[in-house]
Simulated assay, not measured.
Amino acid sequence: MTPTPTPPSIDALLDIMARLRDRERGCPWDVEQTFETIAPYTIEEAYEVADAIDRRDHADLRDELGDLLLQVVFHARMAEEAGHFAFGDVVASICDKMVRRHPHVFADARVESAAAQTANWEALKADERAAKGEADASALAGVSRGLPEWQRALKLQKKAARVGFDWPDVGPVFDKLHEEIDEVRAEFAAGADPARLTDEIGDVLFVCVNLARHAQVDVSQALRHANAKFERRFRRMEALAAEAGSGLAQQSLAEQDALWDRAKAEESR
């Protein structure tokens, strides 16, 4: 019987990263990177993890989680080189945080529901901010400005809702959405001032996030589905135009609309 090979440990990945960052014998690209240049890749890898989950592609999810882990190792390696902290400190920090924020698991506290745990989690985070000397006592404190804006909107709305500032059901959200769309229409009618349109369209998007929250729909997932649907149908339009012996750009808008309707009809079948 052939023994099952032992999978590499995290130490192997840390060693690979150290060799890649070696100033004399490492990879030139890896050596010249900084926290700022790597940050966009970190965000991209997190979204690719979400995409693999959305597609239920577990083999791809395995690979994408590896890519995301590499980002953590990359940042930790750069921090170690600068004398800030090492990978082990990152692990120790998150272990300490998870134990501290789950006293109902690791200590004698009790929580009755997931909702109660969420409230307790926020209270513990507020205590941690206070212990660090952060003076912001607002119910909105702790929402990172580094998040995508739609995600910041969602977190701000959830925090406001925890202190009762929320609509009781989805009806008023629809009313607010119609109100904001009417205000955008009015701005166009008044001459479409860019600053005013930015403000009013921002209000529409904020309410759309609120609508998704009340519907318990994941905003990012909904938009990914919409993007995928648009891309799928548009590519089918291109294929249909090619079958007819012309490019999509040579079609009139009415002809393109007809192709779009045909692509939609094919999906419904």
Rank of each mutant, 00 (worst) to 15 (best):
A186L: 01
E243P: 00
D199H: 08
R185K: 13
L154Q: 10
V163E: 14
E112P: 11
D199C: 02
F206L: 13
V217H: 04
Q250E: 11
N120P: 06
D218M: 06
T118E: 12
A239P: 00
A115G: 06
S113G: 11
A244D: 01
A115R: 14
E122Y: 08
V209S: 05
E187Y: 05
E180L: 02
F188N: 04
A239K: 00
L205M: 09
F165A: 15
R110L: 14
L177D: 01
L223R: 14
G171T: 14
K159D: 14
A109F: 04
R224T: 03
P148G: 09
F165Q: 14
H214E: 03
V219S: 11
R162T: 13
L240H: 01
R185S: 11
Q251E: 07
D182R: 05
D166A: 15
L156E: 11
A153T: 12
V207I: 02
A226N: 01
D218K: 00
A161L: 14
E231H: 06
A130H: 03
A195F: 07
F174V: 07
A226D: 07
E183D: 04
A195R: 10
Q251G: 00
A137S: 08
F165K: 15
D193C: 02
K155E: 00
A107M: 12
A192C: 08
H178T: 12
K159H: 14
P168V: 15
V111C: 09
Q221H: 07
S138M: 03
A228I: 05
L156C: 07
P172E: 01
G245I: 00
S246D: 00
A222S: 05
R213E: 09
D169K: 15
K155Y: 09
N120H: 11
Q216H: 12
G202H: 02
L156D: 09
H225T: 07
D169N: 15
A212V: 08
A249S: 04
V170F: 13
E149S: 09
L154P: 08
A195S: 04
E200F: 04
D169V: 08
E180T: 04
G171K: 07
F174G: 13
K229T: 05
L147N: 02
K125H: 12
I181H: 03
D108K: 09
L205C: 06
R129L: 01
A244T: 01
A189I: 03
E134Q: 11
N120Q: 13
L211F: 03
H214I: 05
E243Y: 00
P194L: 05
A161C: 12
